[in-house]
Simulated assay, not measured.
Amino acid sequence: MLHIAICDDDPAAVQTHREITEQSLRQCQCAGEISIYTHSDNLLYDITQDHFFFDLILLDIEMPGCTGMEMAEQIRPHLPQGKIIFITSHVEYAIDAFALSIFRYVPKAELAQRLPAALRDAIALITLEDGKTYTIQTSSRLEKLPYREIYFIERDGKNARITTADGVSKVRKSLQQVYEELGTEEFLYIDRGCIVNLIHVMQIKDGMAVLKNGVALPISRSHLQAVKAEINHYWGEHI
């Protein structure tokens, strides 16, 4: 079951967001528990003091007291894997939202079109992060790597070198074989010798894929347009 919080100082907006969220959960055939907040301070207290856990938070940016932008900064240390969707009428916030690793930015003027897609993508990603693992098995060890912790995979001679949040693991298989075994759209070739996990890509800049951990990986010219297209398709537009 997913734990979702909706925070907006406008009760009518909260109800609209709740209805869209419930519909998205049904479409994804996913159970969810939705908590409603009309005061940002109450949500912040529940997370930082009472240690409430949320997989996904829908935040209005323009709220009295603690704004959505300020909340995101304070929430992040307590819910490092939590997904935040900003809902606002001011486009200029989008750049700051991107810098805060916000999952998606939804303009209020396009709420009906953009919020359902953002929610479905978030639900699918959370489900992926909670479930799948890649198993490395040899005569001497058995190692399971959660998909969510894999940043990228590189060819290393006759091996594939897998970089995760905890370090590097090697498997004596070709890069293509590992790619086929992973079998999910989140992993994408950016070069003949490198596969990246799209859930960790923050931006494409100067021909490089910049990841959340600060690593920048070169994208080959032959792959650049396809990589951009795949990322746009996977994430949708942020603005």
Rank of each mutant, 00 (worst) to 15 (best):
M1A: 05
I4F: 01
I4G: 00
A5P: 00
I6M: 02
D8L: 01
A13N: 05
T16Y: 10
L25S: 02
L25R: 01
L25E: 01
R26E: 15
C28W: 07
C30K: 12
G32E: 03
T38Q: 14
H39K: 13
D46E: 13
T48A: 07
T48P: 02
F52P: 02
F54C: 05
I57L: 07
I57S: 02
L58T: 06
D60H: 06
I61E: 03
E62G: 08
P64L: 05
P64M: 04
C66Y: 08
M69R: 09
E70C: 09
A72E: 08
L79Y: 05
L79A: 10
Q81P: 04
Q81I: 09
G82C: 15
K83Y: 12
I84C: 05
F86P: 05
F86Q: 07
I87H: 04
T88C: 12
E92Q: 14
D96M: 15
F98E: 04
F98L: 14
A99F: 12
L100T: 06
F103Q: 08
R104S: 14
Y105A: 07
Y105E: 06
P107D: 15
L111H: 09
Q113R: 12
R114W: 10
L115P: 03
A118R: 02
A118Q: 04
R120D: 08
A124G: 13
A124W: 10
D130A: 15
G131W: 11
Q137Y: 10
T138G: 13
T138V: 13
L142F: 12
L142P: 07
E143P: 07
K144D: 12
P146F: 09
Y151C: 05
K158R: 09
D166R: 12
G167P: 07
G167N: 10
G167D: 11
V168L: 15
V171G: 00
R172I: 10
S174G: 12
V178T: 04
V178A: 02
V178Q: 01
Y179L: 07
Y179M: 11
E181T: 12
T184R: 14
E185H: 12
E186D: 13
E186K: 08
F187I: 03
F187W: 07
L188S: 01
Y189H: 03
I190C: 02
I190D: 00
I195S: 00
V196I: 06
V201N: 00
V201I: 05
M202P: 02
K205I: 00
K205R: 09
K205W: 00
D206K: 10
G207R: 00
G207L: 01
V210F: 00
A216C: 12
P218L: 00
P218M: 01
R221Y: 06
S222C: 07
H223K: 04
Y234E: 00
Y234H: 07
G236M: 04
H238N: 14
I239A: 11
